[in-house]
């Protein structure tokens, strides 16, 4: 067992802001975001990479932040739910989740939003089947998913119209 934890230098860009850090290698991305940057919008549910509540985007791709070492993301661009809304207000996904009642307790919602945000970048107009497949990595205990699927479809349409 190492007697002391050595740290590793990394540069991480979180929601557009660049952070030069020296982090212990065993710090998970979820711990870095929540405990170090105090970005507590990223929730940790199961902490075993099952539930997807901790999902964030790394270089545009959805990942479960509870199962990634922060030090392995040197020079990566990380996006969390705090960065989703723009200066004009809610992101279309957030607006659609609100309009469609796609959440109840809201615990999983940050992860669902970020998973969906990643999905819409890969596939801007997904079919309901593609939305369901894209949300395979998240668990929601309240909604039964129907409203989530509808909201993601509605957000995709709204983004398409705005472009």
């Amino acid at each position: 067992m190492p007697e002391q934890v050595s740290t590793t230098a990394v540069v991480l860009t979180v929601n557009g802001e660049t952070h030069t850090e020296s982090l212990p290698a065993n710090m998970l991305l979820s711990e870095y975001l929540r405990d170090h940057l105090h970005l507590t919008g990223t929730h940790v549910g199961c902490d075993t990479s099952q539930c997807g509540a901790c999902t964030v985007l790394v270089d545009g791709l959805s990942v479960k932040s509870c199962t990634v070492l922060a030090v392995s993301l040197d020079e990566s661009r990380i996006e969390t739910v705090e960065g989703l809304a723009g200066p004009d207000g809610l992101h279309p996904l957030q607006a659609a989740f609100r309009a469609r009642h796609a959440l109840q307790c809201g615990f999983c919602t940050p992860g669902v939003l970020m998973t969906a945000a990643g999905l819409l970048r890969e596939s801007p107009r997904p079919s309901p089947t593609e939305i369901r497949a894209g949300l395979d990595g998240i668990l929601c205990r309240c909604t039964g998913y129907e409203n989530i699927v509808a909201a993601v479809g509605e957000a995709a349409a709204a983004i398409g119209e705005a472009m």
Binding site: M1, S6, T8, P24, A25, N26, E31, T48, C66, D74
Partner: peptide, 11 residues
């Protein structure tokens, strides 16, 4: 869930 510390190399 914290992980036991380890040494880390990134060649």
């Amino acid at each position: 869930m914290s992980m036991t510390p380890f040494r880390y190399a990134r060649p």
